[in-house]
């Protein structure tokens, strides 16, 4: 893990590490430990005194229908974002891997949503689905569907799913394309000589060989949907209508800053931390396994 030829110096390595460690401790580890600490305290309404309540904040959370509802919304949301975005990207990547002419041009045209902030992507789709002026809402009305994400929770959830999935397409596309290009051509050629159709080759050879990429992207997409989409929700639906789009990161912000419920917000933070740690461990386990072969 480090070089054989090394320097010895009494203070230099610490000085080099100091800025990184100082920021980490002040802005990461200290606040995280504060969240842990506050999550077991109950503060009175004026913030004057607090008492130790052990797991009461957590129990209260899991008895709160709003929190459970938020959990459910988050799960539906992240699964939908991951599948929609990955499915579409995989289709595009397979096609881009096939074409000979213009593949660079397609690549350039497909990668730049990565640069667009989730919040901005939210605003784009918010505009297109706006019930009065939006082009998509207008088209839907022509087809007989009255779209209104201000009133209909399902419409609102679909709106943030589409906006979030759209922003993630380019990322998934790039990794799927890289994964496809790493599959040895000889395997596919052999299958073709044996008479396997393109469809059959995809499902029996390409897709299984692509599974490490797919799994990696699945974790990344879930992490993105859980933690990276705050902007999409906050800039568009504000968690509404009636909590239909109140995903967990939005709720932790809303309860803490708008509702000023310190203990509850801290408990939510702790739960979210547990989820990130779980997902990170899964991701690294997988990376390690990939390194082995």
């Amino acid at each position: 893990m480090h070089k054989k030829v090394i320097f010895r110096h009494r203070w230099l390595p610490y000085a080099l590490l100091f800025p990184q460690l100082a920021i980490t401790i002040v802005f990461f580890i200290w606040p995280a430990s504060q969240a842990l600490y506050q999550s077991v305290l109950l503060e009175d309404a004026f913030g004057l005194s607090s008492k130790f309540v052990a797991l009461e904040n957590f129990i209260a959370l899991f008895e709160d229908p709003h929190y459970l509802g938020s959990f459910k919304v988050t799960i539906v949301f992240s699964v939908a974002v991951a599948f929609l975005s990955m499915g579409f990207s995989l289709l595009l990547a397979v096609m881009a891997d096939r074409v000979i002419k213009g593949s660079m041009a397609y690549k350039t045209l497909l990668i730049w949503p990565y640069a667009i902030a989730p919040a901005v992507s939210g605003v784009l789709w918010f505009f297109m689905f706006n019930p009065t002026v939006g082009i998509n809402a207008w088209l839907l009305r022509q087809m007989g569907y009255d779209w209104n994400h201000y009133l209909d929770g399902g419409d609102a959830l679909l709106l943030i799913i589409i906006a979030s999935a759209w922003q993630q397409i380019s990322y998934n596309f790039l990794f799927f394309l890289a994964g496809l290009q790493a599959i040895p051509r000889s395997l596919i050629e052999a299958a073709a000589i044996d008479g396997a159709s393109p469809m059959k080759r995809f499902w029996t050879i390409i897709f299984p060989l692509l599974s490490p990429t797919t799994f990696f992207l699945l974790v990344v997409n879930i992490v993105y949907a859980f933690f990276g989409t705050f902007g999409v929700v906050h800039a568009t639906t504000d968690g509404g209508p009636y909590g239909a789009t109140s995903i967990l990161v939005y709720k932790v912000f809303n309860d803490g800053f708008v509702g000023l419920d310190l203990g509850g917000s801290a408990a939510q933070s702790v739960i979210l931390m547990a989820i990130v740690i779980g997902l990170t461990v899964v991701q690294f386990r997988y990376v390690e396994r990939q390194v082995e072969y």
């Binding site: 995280a32 933690f227 932790v252 800053f257």
Partner: peptide, 15 residues
């Protein structure tokens, strides 16, 4: 890596 801003909003703000 395991502590994005989103999961420690209030205490980081306090700091």
């Amino acid at each position: 890596l395991m502590l994005p801003v989103e999961v420690r909003i209030l205490p980081t703000f306090a700091v």
